[in-house]
Design a protein around this nucleic acid. Structure first.
Lengths: 120, 120
DNA sequence: TTAAAGTATAGAGTATAGTCTATACTTTAA
DNA sequence: TTAAAGTATAGACTATACTCTATACTTTAA
């Protein structure tokens, strides 16, 4: 698919997709048998990658970190052991963020309880 | 306390504290009885405010959002009902972020499971 | 066939959240 | 008393993640 379709199917703007491509998070392939243009074609994997980017951002990872995850995931250069290590690290980071968010929630609930009775 | 002490007790750099002060997230009071300088004095509440800023950032709120929370919390201009509404909204947002992070964790665990058996 | 829409590249501009530097004045300790 | 350390303000600079504009070429539909 071309970038327009990728944009529509992911809900991510063409500008942002090109930004991701420049950073190396996704990549389209130019069909060399076509001589009239250099349009880039994206496969189904691009949809998956954009989804991983979205989730990664939600988890608080930077694009640089997400790039590393994608590389270790798709490259094939890492051994399964290295892949496992990468994933375990990321899972631990997400768990850590969940823990911190739960603390924040506790703080907010505590603040909420103090409303009405006395002042802060 | 002066900014140096506030920085040491919070672990936040003087530069960053001044940045927060410029944005209106914290504020020191100049002692007008002192005529030789315009040094700013921060009370214990400043420590609390910096802690809330830290937690808020961890929860994924922007400084602008945190400012609103601090204002509604400390201003005294809001009615308890309005304060409750603000807090409920923020608590719901944090819960939402926790839910999303749990989804991300699920995705990562799924990816992890696929390592070793077959390819991705 | 030509005007509109799509694609590519490069680079400028924006928002957020700092971080650092320069300058000037004040306080403090040797 | 003076050199070092602290404080204040303004503004420049950085990094991240976009977002937009200009330019040029290609495809497509009327």
């Amino acid at each position: 698919m071309l970038i327009n379709e990728l944009s529509k199917r992911t809900g991510v703007s063409i500008h942002t997709l090109r930004y991701y491509e420049n950073l190396g998070l996704i990549s389209g392939a130019v069909d060399e048998t076509v001589t009239t243009n250099r349009y880039k074609n994206y496969g189904e994997d691009a949809l998956e990658r954009v989804e991983i980017i979205r989730e990664g951002k939600e988890a608080g990872f930077t694009l640089a970190e997400i790039k590393k995850m994608l590389e270790s995931w798709y490259s094939g250069t890492l051994t399964p052991e290295e892949q496992l290590k990468t994933m375990d690290k990321k899972i631990a980071e997400v768990e850590n963020r969940i823990r911190k968010l739960k603390d924040v929630k506790k703080l907010l609930v505590r603040m909420r309880k103090e409303i009405g009775k006395g002042e802060c």
